[in-house]
Design a protein around this nucleic acid. Structure first.
Lengths: 194, 194
DNA sequence: GTTTTTGATACATAGAAACATATCACTATT
DNA sequence: AATAGTGATATGTTTCTATGTATCAAAAAC
């Protein structure tokens, strides 16, 4: 395996964990098999760019080619603009739980609007900058309501609720560009050739 | 082919051309076959990360994962820090010519210090920010001297000369961080999923 | 203390990338 | 005009990613 890419594996793993996602969660989100994600994170494969991009995308990262000269500046910017440090372990767990509940619903009744709700919840995971206990409680309530009364109408209304909640969070997130200290962006090794 | 990476191909090609390198030149520099480079640049393959890194490296680029949030800032930085716009077509040609001369020497006498000279010249290509007619003339003179008197001593001295010349250029290059307008760094497509 | 969830790992298979090598028009160079 | 350098392409082989499916031990949740 190329030594060059070992930081990449770390970066991806860190990014995933920073979002409170399990490998399976990321797999569901990105479509890349969990087994493959595991191999990637343990630096056991020289993955294709498309795979990297897919995963990066799911983690809200962009792959870029930066001129050597610009590296210091870019690193500095990246460091200062990092999103958030993960709301709270407990909250992430709660979210996972909620997602699981919905997955069950979707499986029990495929082809319904449950799928939409599922997607909405997935989307709200993406924002996660502003995810707090309050928001989670709202979501959970919506989902639980769904479990009992699941009329076509109630379901799609639930989807809407979550959707607009997500938008609200996204809006809030856009305003706070609070500097935080993440890990420095991915850097390549030196490949001395003598 | 992944639509996602189409900008990547452009970026690589642009970077190569910005250095006045031919596909074969880049191939020699990076070890990646010219045929493959061609396919990559015409976006006909979903290349592996190791290949991408190898090429990027040869082009003095670094592969990075940038948080979405940091994209605007990073783009701006990248735009403003771009190296140089290529010294002059003629000068690049001249350099290629010089390299060719040395390649011949190396082939005619493998295992000698010619190889070192070859590497030094390759290295000086990398700097290229400060490459001008004057520098090239110096290099050419050194190489031509080599063609006639190629004693062990003369050869390794030539290598040293070029090496220190390179270092000097690199030093100069480090000082000028002149803002130029390159092309914006690589960005991924949006992959809407519904 | 049982059940889930986690990441790691195995294995078979399909499909590509990567490579070496060579050729082919085209465009510059001489 | 003859020559040399350019990028694009073709072929055949090897290597390895990527996927699907399944299992496993350890950690976490109940």
């Amino acid at each position: 395996m190329s030594v060059l890419t070992e930081h990449l594996a770390e970066r991806l793993k860190a990014a995933r964990e920073a979002k409170g996602l399990s490998q399976r969660g990321l797999s569901a989100l990105s479509g890349v098999p969990q087994s493959h994600i595991s191999k990637i994170e343990s630096n056991a494969v020289d993955l294709r760019v498309s795979s990297l991009v897919t995963l990066a995308h799911a983690l809200e990262l962009e792959l870029m080619l930066i001129p050597r000269q610009a590296l210091p500046a870019v690193s500095s910017v990246t460091r200062s603009v990092t999103p958030k440090p993960l709301p709270s372990r407990a909250e992430q767990k709660e979210l996972a739980r909620i997602q699981h509940k919905i997955n069950d619903l979707v499986e029990s009744a495929p082809g319904t609007h449950f799928a939409t709700v599922q997607r909405r919840v997935r989307e709200i995971t993406q924002v996660h900058s502003q995810l707090d206990a309050g928001v989670l409680k709202k979501i959970r309530r919506v989902v639980e309501t769904l479990a009992s009364s699941s009329s076509e109408n109630a379901v799609s209304q639930a989807a809407d609720t979550i959707h607009s909640l997500r938008n609200q969070l996204a809006r809030e997130a856009a305003e706070y560009k609070k500097p935080r200290a993440p890990r420095p962006a991915y850097r390549l090794e030196e490949d001395s050739d003598d």
